[in-house]
């Protein structure tokens, strides 16, 4: 009986996002303003022990999802839909309470650190301890004396490890990492991803936001491919490793084709802008399989054990 409860509890996703839409109130010319929807009815969930990579071009809404989860969207943003954290509604108030404790954020760059404070002190934050900071610095190969440095004195790789360490000061159950790898050498990037793997194995849920699909599919369990504010495909990472045929959406396939170790072939055209989105399938303009069916509403559907937003997927 008790076992069953535990099991059910484990089946509740750490985070589930249901039909989330985010729009920004932006100025157009002069004093006129307009409402731009940048995320459209987005749904996803992540369980403990999982790494979910969110991949896509810049401007596809990856970071906005992260900011929405953390409750750090700018003042001109409004959201619809709902988010559940361990089955409980994740309200703005809850986000504020959990942020930095149970929900940790690893930002993109050291610009998020205070340039005038030594990193050791900074990593400790308000509630951390010296011992934990030493332990984490040791774990991430930050040599003695790093804690005495200022953020500007760190190299890219060291900075990244400092940021990871500061996110882990407290036991987090959900980690959101925004582009943690660019600028790192292959070894360091792999090492960083290995760190995430260990965190996930220890029971964390990790959302890894990245434009580097190459690294994403080696580290993650599931990959959500973003395009123009929607998810076009959520598939197990092994499908990405298996190659083009295993994937369902033409955009996901184009990702693989563009990798330098594969064909290095760029897909023509650009991601459409929020506010100038085409009707129907957002990807249709760039798609070789486009047909009349693409003009309608394109729902997310299950194809070969994964979700895809394409009427042609088989």
């Amino acid at each position: 009986m008790g076992n069953k409860i535990v099991q059910e509890k484990e089946n509740v996703p750490v985070l589930s996002v249901e039909e989330l839409s985010v729009s920004f109130n932006m100025y157009q010319k002069g004093l006129r303003r307009e409402n731009l929807e940048v995320l459209h009815k987005l749904s996803l969930s992540i369980h403990a022990g999982e790494i979910l990579a969110v991949a896509g071009a810049s401007g596809s809404g990856k970071s906005i999802l992260a900011h929405a989860v953390l409750g750090i969207l700018p003042g001109n943003a409004s959201t619809r839909g709902r988010m559940l954290y361990k089955g409980q509604p994740l309200t703005e108030k809850e986000k504020r309470r959990l942020r930095g404790r149970e929900i940790a954020f690893i930002p993109q760059s050291v610009d998020y650190l205070d340039p005038l404070m030594r990193v050791g002190r900074q990593v400790m934050g308000v509630r951390g301890t010296k011992e934990r900071q030493r332990e984490l610095f040791g774990k991430y190969g930050l040599e003695e004396g790093t804690e005495k440095k200022f953020p500007s004195m760190l190299s890219g790789g060291m900075a990244r490890r400092v940021l990871i360490a500061s996110a882990l000061m407290e036991e987090a159950s959900l980690i959101v990492a925004d582009e943690p790898t660019p600028g790192l050498s292959k070894e360091l990037a792999e090492e960083t991803l290995q760190n995430f793997r260990e965190l996930a194995d220890a029971g964390c849920a990790v959302i890894l936001i990245t434009h580097d699909i190459d690294l994403a599919f080696r580290a993650a369990d599931k990959i959500a491919v973003f395009y123009a504010g929607t998810i076009v495909e959520i598939a197990p990472a092994k499908d990405f490793r298996a190659g083009k045929e295993a994937l369902r959406h033409p955009y996901s396939r184009a990702f693989l084709e563009a990798l330098p170790q594969n064909e290095f072939r760029p897909l023509k055209g650009f991601q459409p802008y929020a506010g100038k989105l085409p009707k129907g399938c957002l990807f249709a303009e760039r798609c070789s399989e486009r047909s009349g069916m693409c003009m309608g509403e394109i729902p997310m559907r299950k194809v070969r054990g994964a979700e895809v937003r394409c009427v042609h997927a088989r």
Binding site: P182, H211, F255, A258, P260, P266
Partner: peptide, 17 residues
């Protein structure tokens, strides 16, 4: 200097082309 590091792979391939 790492001109395509911050770009997604499709854009990277476009820029280099």
């Amino acid at each position: 200097d790492e001109i395509s590091t911050m770009l997604d792979v499709i854009t990277q391939a476009q820029v280099w082309e």
